[in-house]
Each structure stands twice: as structure tokens, then as C-alpha cells.
Nucleic acid binder design. Structure first.
Lengths: 190, 190
DNA sequence: GCCGTACGATACCGATCTGTATCGTACGGC
DNA sequence: GCCGTACGATACAGATCGGTATCGTACGGC
């Protein structure tokens, strides 16, 4: 390996940013390698091709994205569940038009072929996110934790999509309100 | 005009289908003209370019899409609002993997540039859909019809996105349940 | 019956795409 | 100190992209 940060991680970093900012189809291999400061052939030395790079990018992002939405912090389970919407609202308000929605939804939406490896990565991410939500829902005392987690994921994705189309956090706050309603309904709180 | 159905409408029909099925970026001009049974030059006789064709396709789809989600039918306003989710669930269950989510969300998600004419078309569609929802929400007796309509749109888009990723109508039914909860909460029903 | 025009077909343009081949080179393990 | 290897750079291949130019033609208005 060279003294530089390893071509592989530089490629993954550049790919993650460019795929998210400009779209996967609109990001060429040459531009990607250039931004990574890497020879084009290094891409094909480390990945089978662009599709595999896309999938690996999402796989790497999975844990980070979940940690961002549900950081490990002490606190009430209900607050942590609602915190997801605060993270999204912050991203919309602080980022100067940088927010482009859930990276996994975005990727899947661009890659029509459900057999694309990115689809598997996206589904795996959503499954793991659901697992985390189920755990918190159970901690919060939900009668049906699975159901509550599924409900929350609908609200999360809805909030992200609406937040993108209108560049506004208002729909996210609406989702947060509904989330509180649904949580309280599921936990028998008032 | 020739005896055929007018090149313009054939192009719009083919474009709408292909853009939705395979994505905008993945649909080439040549393939599009071929599927429309039209010479390639006819496309540029009727539209300024591909971008304008994309936008016009969405503009044409707007009214049809809203009529599909909220058909003009007699009946309780609350039922009509909830019917939106039944339409989506039907589309997922009947279509053999054909459902790919809201066409406007899909287009916007693929076209990064917010200045693309398709963005304006998508926003206009969502605005008109909101107006229709506000009207029904008011009819249903919502204290704050604007707020209820916004909430419902979050649920609608969330349902569509989740329905696509998992090819399953379960998230749509979850959204419908939440919609009922939110409507009753807003109208003081129980 | 003639003329204008919208048409389908096709060849072409320059740009860009993914992926490959081939360099010279600089660094690390032994 | 030498050798293997991972590297950056670059040229190239074959395909496809959006868009233009140029045909011959068939139809409708008058």
C-alpha cells in the first residue's frame, strides 16, 4: 500500500458523495476516479465494476446511517424514536439544499432492476433499521412492537420524500407529530 | 396530420410508460421513438428536447393521477381520503411488480437538478393534490384542514416508497391505519 | 390536381459512457 | 538491494447518448 489513504477507501468516499449528490447514472467512472485522486484502473482492481462499487458504497453507509438516525445515547426510548425526525429536520434546515433524502431510497429509485446488488443492500439496511426500531418500540412499551416499527418507517420515509420535494422541514415536523400520536396509541399512553 | 393517432400523443404515451418503467436516464431517444412507432425527428418537431418531453409527460399525467387517487364519487369524505391508500394497495397487489411508486417522486428523484422543468411539474402536481386533500379534509370536518392534508401526503408518499422497496402492500395498509387515526384525531371523532 | 407540410427512415455528429490494455514507477517484504 | 505488486496516468475500444441534417413520400386544404 502507498502512503496515501488506500485507494479503496478514497474511492468509496468519493463514490458515496458523488452518487448521492449527482445521482448514480450521472456519475461517470472517470470523474469518480479523478475526484478520488486515483487512477481509473484502481477502481477495477478493487471492485468488479461500477455496480459493485454502488452496492459496496451502500453497504458501508448502512451502519453509519443507522447510527446517525438512532445514536447510542441514554434516554427515554420514546424520545429516541422521535429523535429520528429531529435528525432529518436538522439535515434539511442546516444543509443548504444538500439534503436529498434517504440514500438507499434514492439509489433504489434510480436503479430499476430489482436484481441490482444495490437493491439487496437497500433492503438489508431497511431491515436492520426496522430491527432497531422494533427494539426501541418494545422498550417504549408498545403492545405490538413490530407494527409500531413498521408504522414509524412509513413516517420516516414519507418525511424524507416530502422534505426533499418541498425543500422544507415542515413535513418532517408533521411526521414527528404523527409519530408521537402513533407511539402513544401503541403504548397506551395519553 | 396523418391517419395515425398523431405522433405527439403516441410519443407522450410511449414516453410516459418507458420513463416510468425503466427510468428517464435509461430511456434513450431512439428506443423511445421506435416504441412510439415514430420517426426520431418527430420528437424534435413537437418538443424542444428530451427534458421538455419529460416535463410534458408529467404535466399530462397530473390530472389523471389525481383522478385515480381521488375519483369523483359520491360518498363520505373520510372514506374518499382513506380510499387513496386502497388505490395504492390495489396497484401493488394487482400489478405484477409493475408498481414503481409515485411517478412524480420517481422523476424528481432521478433528476438532481432542481431547475429541471420536471421539478416544477412535480411540485405543481403535489400542490394540486394537496388542494384536493384540503377540500376533502374540510368536508370531513377537520379543525385544521391544511394540517391534515399535509399529514396525509406524508403518509401517502411514505406508503408508496415503502410499498416499492418491499414489494408488499403491508406498509400501505399501515399508512391507511395511521391515516384513519390522524383523520379522527383532527375531526374530533372517535 | 397541385402544393405545402407533417411524416418515417436513416445517416451522421461530437460527446460520453463502462470497461480494458499498457505503460513507467515507487514502495514494502524479505 | 532486489523483486513483486499496487499504483497513477493515459490511450484505446465499442457502444450509446442527445440532437441535427437530409432524404423520399403520402396526405389534406384549396
Amino acid at each position: 500500500m502507498t502512503g496515501t489513504k488506500d485507494a479503496r477507501v478514497r474511492l468509496l468516499r468519493a463514490a458515496e458523495a458523488m452518487f448521492y449528490e449527482q445521482g448514480i447514472g450521472n456519475t461517470g467512472i472517470d470523474a469518480l476516479a479523478a475526484r478520488a485522486g486515483v487512477g481509473k484502473m484502481s477502481l477495477y482492481r478493487h471492485f468488479a465494476g461500477k455496480d459493485e462499487l454502488v452496492a459496496e458504497t451502500l453497504r458501508q453507509r448502512d451502519a453509519r446511517h443507522r447510527a446517525w438516525l438512532l445514536p447510542e445515547e441514554p434516554g427515554d426510548s420514546r424520545d429516541r424514536l422521535l429523535g429520528v425526525f429531529d435528525r432529518i429536520a436538522e439535515a434539511i434546515e442546516s444543509g443548504d439544499g444538500t439534503f436529498r433524502g434517504c440514500p438507499f431510497v434514492k439509489a433504489v429509485s434510480e436503479l430499476e432492476d430489482a436484481a441490482h446488488p444495490a437493491w439487496a443492500a437497500a433492503r438489508e439496511h431497511k431491515a436492520r433499521l426496522i430491527s432497531a426500531l422494533v427494539r426501541l418500540a418494545a422498550e417504549a412499551g408498545a403492545a405490538d412492537a413490530d407494527r409500531l416499527a413498521g408504522d414509524l418507517l412509513v413516517l420516516i420515509d414519507g418525511a424524507a420524500v416530502q422534505g426533499v420535494i418541498r425543500q422544507d422541514a415542515a413535513p418532517v415536523r408533521a411526521a414527528r407529530r404523527m409519530a408521537a400520536l402513533v407511539i402513544d396509541d401503541a403504548t397506551g399512553a395519553g
